Amino acid sequence: MRNRVDADDSGTFYPFVRLLQAMILVTGGAGFIGGHLAEAFIRDGYDVVTLDNLNSYYDVDIKRRNVECAREAAEEGTGSYELVEGDIRDADLVDDLVDDAEYVFHQAAQAGVRTSVENPRRVNDINVEGTLNVLDAARESPVERIVFASSSSVYGKPTSLPYEEDHPTTPISPYGVSKLAAENYVRVYGDLYDLPTVALRYFTVYGPRMRPNMAISNFVSRCMNDEPPIVYGDGTQTRDFTYADDIVRANTKLLETDAADGEVLNIGSTDNVSIATLAEVIRDEIAPDLDIEYGERQAGDAEHTHADVTKANDVIGYEPTEDIRSGVRKFIGWYQENREWYEPLVRSS
């Protein structure tokens, strides 16, 4: 039997037995992006099942919050919610869940460039083998569409910017390699087995309930505690930071159209910002008198990312709504409201 769990108001998980006929399966659905997708789909009236192993890559308290938000959405609206505690590497469990789903949003992955440098085999096992489990299950079921969460990390070293989807893919971290390999499997399965698949290449996603070890959350935490933000490297490296709500909008479009089937799409903000500028923007919003400090650059970090979203706009009408300044202000507001529980996670990451 599936190990189905829910959470009470205190965030404590407990097992229950209740079968739902799910329309949407979100793998990694208690994580940052998966949690936002699950909540949005439920509020739109869909029945949602999420698969998540609730691992401790980052504090499970954030995943509890994601579960609580999804449950609240189900209580307030017409969609339903179910959390299945399990691992994407469990092929039998994945078969069972995919067989019930009309749409699969495959978000489950071992994230983190630095983590992948430390343990590349684990990243391959989860990100590639786990994806193959989803694809094999989909071959045997009438799935309407599989949407795969890829990453800008597949590009690696830029030959030109912004990245268009046909830019060479030369990842520089095991994480990027794993995402590219999984993305290629998604493409090949789509072609060979007539599976409707879409791959979305996300560009540095941030927003409420984000992983606490990300640069934005660390900069905000340090500034709120009157400590200078620390930039790793010389600060000239750039990122295309994408607000979580824009990621949700792009995914939601794929419930409405088959225009992107078989395609790879960049989902970014088009707003290319240096890490030093990011630190300054956050510093200026919170504690303008602080200096910026610099530390040793981390291995495996990309030099630049910058999304060309022309194709996504043409195919699904995607348009980012938040630039870095408006998005940072929103995140700082959320951080202040949730500081009591969130900040300890950031400080310990």
Rank of each mutant, 00 (worst) to 15 (best):
D52F: 09
E39D: 13
P228D: 09
R297H: 09
R209D: 09
E68V: 06
P171R: 05
A259N: 11
A276S: 13
R71V: 11
A101W: 04
V48L: 08
R43D: 13
P196F: 07
T197Q: 11
L20H: 00
A250I: 05
Y232M: 13
L83W: 03
L93D: 04
L278N: 06
V309E: 05
E319N: 08
V346C: 11
L192P: 01
E72A: 09
I275R: 12
E343G: 00
V5L: 14
V198F: 09
V143N: 08
L290S: 04
F41T: 04
L180V: 09
D284T: 14
D240I: 01
P320M: 10
A299P: 15
T115N: 14
N313W: 04
G79K: 07
D258Y: 01
S80F: 11
N266C: 05
S152Q: 10
N53F: 10
A260Q: 11
R283W: 01
V309R: 00
Y46P: 02
L132C: 08
L345R: 10
R89I: 07
N213K: 07
I316G: 07
V17C: 10
V198A: 13
K311S: 01
P158A: 05
A73P: 10
V117N: 12
P320E: 10
V49Q: 09
E256D: 14
F148S: 06
D47G: 06
N266T: 02
E303G: 10
E129L: 13
A138I: 02
S80Q: 14
R187I: 07
R329F: 03
A279R: 12
R329N: 15
C223G: 03
T197F: 10
V128R: 03
L255A: 04
D271I: 08
A111D: 12
L93G: 00
G233M: 10
A312K: 01
I146L: 13
R249G: 08
P168R: 03
R2L: 15
I172N: 10
L97G: 08
T310Q: 08
E256M: 01
F105D: 01
D323N: 15
Y58H: 11
E102N: 06
S326K: 00
G34R: 07
S141H: 13
V48G: 12
R122E: 15
A70N: 03
S141P: 01
A137G: 02
P208K: 03
M224D: 02
V67C: 15
Y103K: 12
L19S: 07
I286L: 14
E263Y: 08
G207M: 05
T310E: 13
Y46K: 11
N133L: 08
A111H: 14
A260P: 05
S153M: 11
Y232N: 04
Y232L: 15
V328W: 02
V281H: 13
E296F: 06
H106E: 09
V5A: 07
A182P: 11
P212T: 02
A307Y: 02
R209Q: 05
D90C: 06
D191M: 12
G45R: 06
L265M: 07
A109F: 01
I324K: 03
D61Y: 14
D314G: 03
D136Q: 15
D99G: 00
V128K: 06
D9T: 13
R211F: 01
V220Q: 06
V147S: 03
L278S: 07
I275G: 07
E68Y: 03
E39W: 01
G45V: 05
N55W: 04
M23K: 14
S116T: 08
